[in-house]
Amino acid sequence: MGKLDGKVACITGGTRSIGRAIADAFLAEGATVVVNGRDAAKGQVCLNEMKAGDRAAFFAGDSSKQSVVEGLIDFTIEKYGKLDICCLNSGGVQMTAPVAQMTDEEWALEVDWNLNHVFWGMRRALQHMIPRQAGRIIVTSSVEGKLGKPGIPGYVTTKHAVNGLVKSAAHEVGTLGITVNAILPGIIETDIVRATGPDSAIAMGLDGYDALIDMFASESAIKRPNKVEEVAAVAVMLATDAARNLTGVLFPVDGGTMPY
């Protein structure tokens, strides 16, 4: 018997890293999960590895596109009859440049992926959840949602913004059986961080990827990056019925990095 038996979840960016760990943890607790990602081949590999049969499905598409985010939610409801848990998880450092050199086009890409994707997904999910008077929205924010680093202003700004969005929405639906929370992980060596970390390191004036990881680790109390499983455990807890009074929380999973 799992803590999420009978629940239906969807997760943007769910085929790898944090999203995948959340998907695996939800499946282990009995939920049905729709994962989203850009690459259909990777999606198929993900489903094969999950071995969850009808309890897992894949929805292909780029989550920085409104049609894809809304499509994921509509697909989930159509296929499984409802949506209990909406994890808006995908995102990352797309563009590295100091504010003085950032172009409008780069800025828009960052805003679409990290902020608008969360807004589009949250809005669509709430339209389904409000009439049902039940739901869980879990946003993957970041330690950079509370702090700032040079060279990645788009990421820092959009993660701050989603924290505000979460707090506002939590108060709008607090009496309707719906909770809205953000998880704020510290640095985790995900595929995205491995892919974009070298550029981020240059933008921050650091000597390569390892120096970037070392810097984040040294800012923490535990002196190591976090792990995807640590985020997944919090996501499971927030997704349960028992967490009905936890809302508007910016839940740190950062090894003691953020000051507040």
């Binding site: 939590a170 535990i222 792990k227 936890l246 809302t247 508007g248 929380v249 740190p252 999973v253 090894g255």
Partner: peptide
């Protein structure tokens, strides 16, 4: 919980 420390977790209904 090994990766969560130094945190002040709000359990306050928002």
């Amino acid at each position: 919980g090994a990766g969560i420390t130094g945190s002040m977790i709000s359990i306050d209904g928002g």
